[in-house]
Nucleic acid binder design. Structure first.
Lengths: 275, 275
DNA sequence: GGCATAAGGTATGACGGAGAACCATTGCTT
DNA sequence: AAGCAATGGTTCTCCGTCATACCTTATGCC
């Protein structure tokens, strides 16, 4: 009785260790199962991803980190009030405060009480430049996935943007472009990000904009580990101008093409630092 | 004391009704806040989406519905065992069973006990054809977003696919294409979906594949409400062949272009039924 | 026929997180 | 100087969910 390992519940992973990610569902072909029509080669993995990436705390942390990494709230800027932020993220204020506590401990934000108080972003003590840090992050992030997905989203956004540009959109785009020109070196990444986010937003697809925000945050995390060369920056600026020009000209094909080239540059740079 | 409405907690929405979606964050410009650098026009909405779309139950339900809508588990097919499925979705078996209970009540799946038992997909009692149903779904789904995002993902996938195609990939693609040719009318949508999913998967970006799966599930939900015309189907088939051919030829530009055209067709069809 | 096995069905205790109410602090307005 | 309002800080309770264990049913194999 004691030695017998019962076919216990809720942990088949113990008996079939690596069956989850790579293998999946061979049992679908078990005898007695009528396989109607075709039996597709497509895997279920794409859909059967975890409903929640972690606990609510971790997901919220990740999302607020995105906010900071994208520079949507600049150093010195204020995050939304706790009550509002909690509501937007659909988490309780208690949980949110645990997240903010972590960020405070990391000296990334600072809280001030009283009216017109709030949670303020501190001038980045984060972003520790260094290639060992890059290696650490590459271990977590699927770089190829990030780069490819980014290119698809950016090119698509540029194309859509060119097709359905409004007058107001054109104005915002021009403003964002000129902001990158006037940016000091330490603020360049932020302005660059904002320009691209503007493009994504003007694509007219909320899903696209949201996905781009996510992938760009990941990208920034990687880019923060490599030096910002003035040479690259100038090249980048020319490409930005060309993309915006194509969009304003309603030339979708050119916009997509230019954007792909632009993304290819960043991708090559990053891949260079990885090899 | 009794009449005084205290500035209560956790529901600022009551005092500022519509401030969440449209407005957001004007308070960022409040006095006393030093706005470093630029003050971007970009909104925080893209990042500050809910950490969880609903409770775990709802999200899991949505995900399993995706599985069915994509036809990844065909009618008559078996879902993964409860223990396994729960683990993949990272929810408890109890919660998962609540989800399955709902699907059983809707006569979408059926559970059988005993060895080689499981949860089986019933031949669609769902997909209630009819334009009033379409109207109901359009009220929930942002159709423009879906169509645009889809086009971007599909075109991007086709391009990436053409650039980095392996021999095995080519084989899978050819197989998926020929499966659409041999499909009976009631199975066509499923084979069509599988072909596109294969392309997305072969793009080499897991994120892209996952996002496509989601958007395609939404799209299928809409398409199930409109009739499947043989005329459109034949046209579709020619385009499929052209896309696959371009991919096999490693002609990324042509693949993207053809795919955009293909998506444009579906989009026009759907928009037609909506106007 | 009997047993092992794999699947669904059921019950329970513990815990994380949501929601609500309250307190404490600050600065603007009067 | 007083009051108000908006913010962060704290505490409480309750519900959903998880983990675990066990029961029941059906099938294949010996």
């Amino acid at each position: 009785m004691a030695t017998r390992r019962r076919a216990d519940d809720t942990r088949p992973a113990a008996t079939q260790p690596a069956a989850r990610v790579g293998g999946g569902l061979e049992a679908l072909g078990a005898p007695g199962v009528r396989e109607a029509a075709g039996g597709g080669p497509a895997r279920l993995d794409a859909v059967l991803r975890p409903v929640r990436a972690g606990n609510g705390f971790e997901e919220a942390l990740e999302q607020i980190l995105q906010l900071l990494r994208l520079g949507l709230v600049p150093p010195g800027g204020r995050l939304p009030a706790e009550r509002e932020l909690a509501q937007q993220l659909r988490i309780s204020r208690v949980t949110l405060r645990e997240v903010l506590k972590v960020l405070q401990d990391q000296h990334m934000v600072e809280s001030r009480r009283g009216r017109y108080g709030g949670t303020f972003v501190l001038p980045r003590a984060f972003a520790p430049d260094g290639s060992d840090e890059l290696a650490r992050r590459v271990a977590v992030v699927d770089v190829e996935d990030t780069l490819r997905f980014r290119e698809v989203l950016e090119a698509g956004a540029a194309g859509l943007c060119a097709e359905g540009l409004t007058g107001e959109g054109g104005g915002r785009l021009r403003a964002a472009l000129s902001a990158t020109r006037g940016a000091r070196l330490e603020d360049y990444r932020r302005q660059d990000t904002l320009l691209h986010l503007t493009l994504a937003e003007l694509s007219g697809s909320r899903s696209l904009a949201a996905q781009y925000a996510g992938v760009r945050a990941t990208l920034n995390e990687l880019l923060d580990c490599i030096p910002l060369l003035v040479r690259n920056l100038e090249h980048s600026q020319h490409q930005h101008a060309a993309v915006v020009e194509a969009v304003l000209d309603r030339d979708a094909d050119a916009a997509r093409e230019m954007m792909r080239e632009h993304c290819g540059g960043t991708a090559a740079l990053l891949r260079g630092f990885l090899s």
